[in-house]
Amino acid sequence: MLDKIKKLIELYEEILSMPHRQEVARELRDEDDIFLLLIYSEMLGIPNPAYYYTLELYPYIIEKFHDWHLRMGMEKSPISGIRCC
């Protein structure tokens, strides 16, 4: 009985979130884009006071860099030290 109630609740939550799934995905992508801009801003020539602290994140987000600069409208990597294309 308890298992059926859990499944019913999961179905209810999925039905409620279905119309907003694209909006949530778009918002998450926009947040990621802003975060990546903050991280790479010093290399793009925009002063970043947190550069020292964000430097250690580069190895973890380098894989996302290619998709990010294409979404931002840059055909080639704007940073000479990162060759992804």
Rank of each mutant, 00 (worst) to 15 (best):
residue 1 M to K: 14
residue 2 L to M: 12
residue 4 K to D: 12
residue 4 K to F: 10
residue 5 I to S: 02
residue 5 I to R: 15
residue 5 I to A: 14
residue 6 K to S: 10
residue 7 K to L: 09
residue 7 K to Y: 01
residue 8 L to H: 05
residue 10 E to N: 12
residue 12 Y to M: 08
residue 13 E to T: 04
residue 13 E to K: 13
residue 13 E to V: 03
residue 13 E to A: 14
residue 14 E to N: 11
residue 15 I to M: 09
residue 15 I to P: 00
residue 16 L to Y: 04
residue 16 L to W: 02
residue 17 S to E: 15
residue 18 M to G: 05
residue 20 H to P: 01
residue 21 R to K: 15
residue 23 E to R: 11
residue 24 V to K: 08
residue 24 V to S: 07
residue 25 A to D: 12
residue 27 E to Q: 13
residue 28 L to H: 03
residue 29 R to L: 14
residue 29 R to P: 01
residue 30 D to E: 13
residue 31 E to D: 12
residue 33 D to I: 03
residue 33 D to S: 09
residue 34 I to L: 10
residue 34 I to K: 11
residue 35 F to R: 06
residue 36 L to Q: 04
residue 37 L to G: 04
residue 37 L to I: 01
residue 37 L to M: 09
residue 38 L to A: 09
residue 39 I to M: 09
residue 39 I to R: 04
residue 40 Y to N: 07
residue 43 M to A: 12
residue 44 L to K: 01
residue 45 G to Y: 02
residue 45 G to V: 06
residue 45 G to A: 07
residue 46 I to R: 01
residue 47 P to H: 14
residue 47 P to Q: 10
residue 48 N to C: 09
residue 50 A to E: 06
residue 51 Y to F: 09
residue 51 Y to K: 14
residue 52 Y to T: 10
residue 52 Y to L: 08
residue 52 Y to G: 12
residue 52 Y to V: 06
residue 52 Y to H: 07
residue 53 Y to I: 04
residue 54 T to I: 05
residue 54 T to F: 15
residue 55 L to Q: 13
residue 55 L to A: 13
residue 56 E to W: 02
residue 57 L to D: 14
residue 57 L to I: 13
residue 58 Y to V: 08
residue 58 Y to A: 00
residue 60 Y to N: 07
residue 61 I to H: 06
residue 61 I to N: 08
residue 61 I to E: 05
residue 62 I to N: 04
residue 62 I to Q: 11
residue 62 I to K: 11
residue 63 E to A: 10
residue 64 K to Y: 04
residue 64 K to T: 10
residue 65 F to P: 03
residue 65 F to R: 08
residue 65 F to K: 06
residue 66 H to C: 10
residue 67 D to Y: 03
residue 68 W to R: 07
residue 70 L to E: 06
residue 70 L to Q: 13
residue 71 R to S: 07
residue 71 R to N: 11
residue 71 R to Q: 10
residue 72 M to P: 00
residue 72 M to N: 00
residue 72 M to Y: 00
residue 73 G to W: 00
residue 73 G to L: 01
residue 74 M to I: 09
residue 75 E to Y: 06
residue 77 S to R: 07
residue 77 S to D: 05
residue 78 P to M: 03
residue 79 I to W: 05
residue 79 I to M: 03
residue 79 I to R: 13
residue 82 I to F: 15
residue 82 I to L: 15
residue 82 I to K: 03
residue 83 R to G: 01
residue 84 C to H: 03
residue 84 C to L: 11
residue 85 C to E: 12
residue 85 C to N: 15
